[in-house]
Design a binder for these strands. Structure first.
Length: 166
DNA sequence: GAAACGATTACT
DNA sequence: GTAATCGTTTCA
């Protein structure tokens, strides 16, 4: 099993989001299968943090792909994103749901729960995702059909079909 | 320097 | 339906 290379992420954000479904998210001995993601684009996507330009928080979204973008939501929850598109182009994929593979228990539905169960926090801001202890590994394409629905929990551009799950 | 807001979750 | 809670962003 090999980690996904930087080139995997250097593509269209929506394409990366679809391809991430079924892949393996690993932190130490904890492993989970990615079953739910959302795509966030750049300047045209008013729901994306990157839409208002580069800030200290969002600068990694504009940087090289395959990096982790971890941010604090509502002052309470950490959320894990993966940067897509090549260097200089904004775009990221929010990991919303996992199914346990090893070292995890119960359902991991919701980005806040997910990061808490995986023990992921802002230490990993900008971390390359092909490098242990936090990495995403390749896996066979999912046999389940991919469902496409509007994104959840946002107010602007809430009807864009950028949420993908199995 | 001060004020408002949010890619959420859990509880009433 | 709404409170909890705080870093980031926006405005003066």
């Amino acid at each position: 099993m090999i980690p996904l290379p930087e080139s995997f992420y250097a593509r269209d954000t929506v394409e990366v989001a679809r391809e991430l479904l079924g892949k393996l998210l690993v932190h130490g001995h904890r492993q989970g299968r990615i079953v739910e993601v959302e795509a966030y684009l750049g300047s045209d996507d008013l729901a994306a943090h990157a839409s208002r330009g580069v800030t200290p928080r969002t600068r990694v979204i504009f940087g090289p792909p395959g990096r982790a973008y971890v941010y604090l939501s509502y002052g309470i929850h950490e959320c894990l994103n993966v940067v897509a598109e090549r260097n200089g182009i904004p775009g990221c994929v929010l990991i919303r749901g996992l199914t346990p593979v090893a070292g995890l228990t119960g359902k991991l539905n919701g980005p806040g729960k997910l990061t808490k169960a995986m023990d992921i926090d802002r230490r990993f801001y900008g971390h390359p995702l092909w490098q242990p202890p936090l990495a995403i590994y390749n896996a066979p394409a999912p046999s389940e059909p991919i469902h496409v629905t509007p994104r959840i929990g946002i107010s602007r551009c809430a009807d864009w079909p950028l949420r993908f799950h199995l």
